[in-house]
């Protein structure tokens, strides 16, 4: 089975400095592989280990400045290749920086077509920095493939279909889907492997291909932007910030209850 894993270089939100009411310092924060995308890579690699085939990772760079992000992207690619992906296709182009989910999906579709065919596309449920959950569904529509999100388990049977275990609303479901298909996974589906030093060294020899939008025959800047981000500000959290430290648990409990009663909460 030839599997594509979608990997976003997301802003590392842990390292992001944010002052209330101001724009978070996005340029200063590093990017890294969005956490749930590591689960997608792990699942792709383990499917190949079970049934054979190949794993190709695809990424469209969404954050600038490109010079800096390219360095981070090479590191990210190395990690994904060390986990067992066979090759990494990176779409890097100034025009794709800040692109909306529709444009990202169109670029991914073009790259998948150029380097395919694939039987299965695995994505993350949502990215750490945006958590829109829109890209995989848009991509499925673009390719005309069925889309099954939120996989907690993927079982590859014979006969050109896979079974997906997932939870939606008040129900647990097992969904059988014919290939080719797009599936998004949750963090619970597996534990991403930590590559060994040997694997990391070998990853440097695996192919990393960098494509521009014109390589993919896609229109340049401005095209297909259904959403433009005009500003990002950090939310103001106005909390009282009272820290209760007391001699004994009992005393702390009494003080807390007193405070809550006074504030009219209980």
């Amino acid at each position: 089975m030839d599997v594509a894993a979608l990997v976003k270089l997301a802003l590392d939100v842990e390292g992001l400095r944010a002052e209330p009411g101001e724009a978070p310092r996005v340029d200063q924060a590093p990017t890294k592989v969005s956490e749930i995308d590591l689960n997608a890579v792990e699942e792709a690699v383990s499917i190949r280990e079970r049934v054979g085939g190949s794993v190709t990772a695809f990424s469209v760079l969404n954050w600038g400045p490109l010079s800096r992000r390219m360095r981070e992207a090479r590191e990210a690619a190395k990690r994904v290749l060390a986990m067992g992906a066979d090759r990494f296709v990176l779409v890097a182009d100034e025009a794709a920086v800040g692109a909306d989910t529709g444009f990202t999906a169109a670029a991914l579709a073009a790259a998948l077509r150029a380097r395919g065919p694939f039987d299965l596309v695995l994505a993350g449920e949502g990215t750490e920095d945006s958590f829109g959950g829109l890209v995989p569904g848009r991509l499925a529509q673009e390719l005309g493939w069925p889309y099954v999100p939120y996989a907690d388990g993927v079982e590859v049977g014979g006969g050109g279909s896979v079974r997906v275990r997932r939870a939606v609303g008040d129900f647990e479901e097992v969904v059988e889907v014919d290939l080719p298909a797009v599936i998004s996974v949750t963090q619970e589906i597996n534990k991403p492997r930590i590559p060994t030093l040997m694997q990391i060294l070998q990853a440097g020899k695996k192919p990393l291909e960098v494509l521009s939008l014109s390589d993919l025959g896609l229109p340049g800047p401005g095209a297909g932007r259904g959403v433009r981000v005009s500003s990002v500000v950090s939310p103001r959290v106005e909390r009282r910030g009272v820290v209760i430290e007391a001699e004994s648990p009992r005393e702390a409990a009494e003080r807390l209850v007193e405070e809550l009663r006074r504030a009219g909460v209980i």
Binding site: D100, T101, G102, A105, G126, F131, G132, G133, L134, V135, P136, G137, R138, L139, A140, Q141, E142, Y147, P149, Y150, A167, V168, G169, G226, V227
Partner: peptide, 23 residues
């Protein structure tokens, strides 16, 4: 913006050729 809404939003936006936002 729950799992059902997020499941269908992307595909519908692409079908309509328009913008989309969740959450």
């Amino acid at each position: 913006s729950d799992r059902i809404g997020r499941q269908v939003a992307g595909g519908l936006a692409q079908l309509l050729g328009g913008g989309a936002s969740t959450e």
